[in-house]
């Protein structure tokens, strides 16, 4: 089996979620080729060998710097053909998921997104995917010879398999018609820990009473090297930026640790956090529904508990 993995980069470096995709591909068995589009950091490229790629295709064309979905889809479809790949693996993202869907159509492949585990290949090729916003799973058989799999965070563990790979320049054939959208500008939080990728998330709700009180939460997040998140009303009221909104209609997170502060735990919020490994809830109301979904809970006033928690963590480092 030959597997192609699309490696998405952020500031020229492979995203952690893409390393998970690479390790997922490696675990599938067979020969793994990674493809990177646009200018990228040479060191980061070479490292892909350690995570399971035996070959790295790098299309460094500057026109690939911006992620235009149609362009990426065409280039990756062509690479699948060139490499005789049976399977394409990538990590779900707002760029990669639609790219994957288009590749599936162009390549005549079966497609699944939000895949959470390695496939069951005992009879056919079945993948397990998360559905109903994390409230359930389904097993789907991918019937076509070619397959495109978009994996959810934590579907595979990132581990070094010690391999080596050479970086081969890849000349992408770019068609003007594919440049059907123009990205005029982008604003991206830099230097911060990005919410969808974070290992620890510190999230605040309406219980914090106003944007001016986020300092205690940011301090805790900084101490833990965590990303900050929030509930929907908080971003609706512009206390926090929209991309921090967690839940059914926001970002779905799957960190090791999710700390919810002053969030009631409405089912729509829980839908975005139910893939977290461990959930800590701090709420002054012992009846808050979030406690039922938590691993650890503290009943108390956030303004009192959170600074103490930050101090206790600092003391334990």
């Amino acid at each position: 089996m030959s597997v192609l993995v699309f490696i998405e980069t952020s500031e020229g470096k492979a995203k952690k979620s893409s390393l998970e995709a690479l390790c997922y591909a490696k675990a599938l068995g067979g020969n793994v080729t990674a493809i990177v589009l646009g200018p990228a950091d040479a060191g980061s490229l070479a490292e892909l060998g350690k995570y399971g790629a035996s070959k790295i295709l790098h299309a460094s064309d500057a026109r690939l710097e911006k992620g235009i979905i149609q362009v990426y889809a065409s280039v990756i479809t062509k690479a699948m053909t060139d490499e005789n790949a049976d399977v394409l693996v990538l990590a779900n993202s707002s760029l990669a998921t639609p790219v994957a869907a288009k590749v599936a159509i162009k390549a005549g492949a079966s497609f699944a997104s939000n895949v959470v585990e390695l496939p069951d290949t005992s009879s056919g090729f079945k993948v397990k995917r998360s559905i109903y916003t994390g409230k359930a799973f389904c097993w789907q058989e991918l019937k076509n010879a070619k397959k495109v799999i978009a994996i959810k965070k934590n579907a595979a563990e990132v581990k070094e398999s010690g391999g080596n790979a050479t970086v081969t320049p890849y000349t992408a054939t770019l068609t003007d018609a594919d440049f059907n959208t123009t990205i005029l500008s982008s604003e991206k939080a830099t230097g911060e820990v990005l919410l969808p990728e974070a290992e620890i998330v510190v999230s605040g709700g309406r219980g914090l009473k106003g944007p001016e009180h986020w300092g205690i939460l940011e301090e805790l997040a900084k101490t833990l090297h965590a990303a900050t998140g929030c509930s929907k009303p908080v971003s609706d009221m512009n206390w926090r930026p929209h991309h921090e909104h967690v839940g059914q209609t926001g970002v779905k997170v799957a960190p090791q640790l999710y700390i919810a502060i002053g969030i009631s735990g409405a089912i729509q919020h829980l839908a975005g956090v139910n893939s977290s490994k461990c959930i800590v809830v701090i709420n002054k109301d012992p009846e808050a529904p979030f406690f039922k979904a938590a691993d650890y809970g503290i009943v108390g006033d956030a303004f009192d508990v959170v600074p103490k928690l930050t101090a206790a963590i600092k003391a334990s480092l």
Binding site: F137, N144, A293, L309, A312, A315, S316
Partner: peptide, 27 residues
């Protein structure tokens, strides 16, 4: 191109462990 073969529910969470507000170090 795909067929759903079966559904599954997540394994239920264990009970929450409560920690006193003045024992954060314990958490």
């Amino acid at each position: 191109t795909v067929t759903v073969t079966k559904f599954e529910l997540p394994t239920p969470k264990g009970a929450v462990k409560m920690i006193a507000a003045d024992a954060v170090a314990d958490l």
